[in-house]
Amino acid sequence: MFDKLLANLHFLAAMLLFIIGFYTMLTDSNLIKKVIGLNIMDTGIFLFFISLGYSGGPAGGEANPLPSALMYGGLAAAVSLTAFGLAMIVRLYKYYGTIDADEIMSKRGEAE
C-alpha cells in the first residue's frame, strides 16, 4: 500500500495542487488570490499530464513527448486567462478602490 503510494507520489501532488487551486478560486474573496488559485489549479493539471509521459525506469529512460507538447496549449490558455483576468481586476480596482470581492459586493449594495 505504502509502496504504491510512494510510486505514484506525483499523481498525489498533482491532485493536491488541483484541489488547493480549486478551493482558493471558489472560496477566497481576494480577486488576485483567485487568479493565483487558477494558476495553481492549472499547474496541478500540467504536472498530472506531464507525469503521464514518464515511461522509463528509475534511471530515467525515455518519455512520451505527447503530453508535454499538449501542455503547451494548456500553458497558452492559462497565461491568456491570467492576463485577461488581471486586466479586468485592474479596471475593477479603478471603479471600487478594492480587490476584495466581499467589499465590492457591499459597496455595490450601498450604491443601490
Binding site: 471558489l26 480577486l31 489549479m41 492549472d42 493539471i45 503530453p67 494548456g74 490558455a77 483576468g85 455595490r108
Partner: peptide
C-alpha cells in the same frame, strides 16, 4: 459588465480545469 465578466471567467475556468483533468484521466 466588468463584475459579470470576471465572475463568468472564474467559474468558466473552473469548468475548463475540470474538463482538462477529465481529458487527462481518459488519456492516462
Amino acid at each position: 459588465c466588468l463584475e459579470a465578466g470576471l465572475k463568468y471567467m472564474f467559474l468558466s475556468t473552473l469548468g475548463s480545469g475540470m474538463i482538462l483533468l477529465g481529458i487527462g484521466l481518459v488519456y492516462m
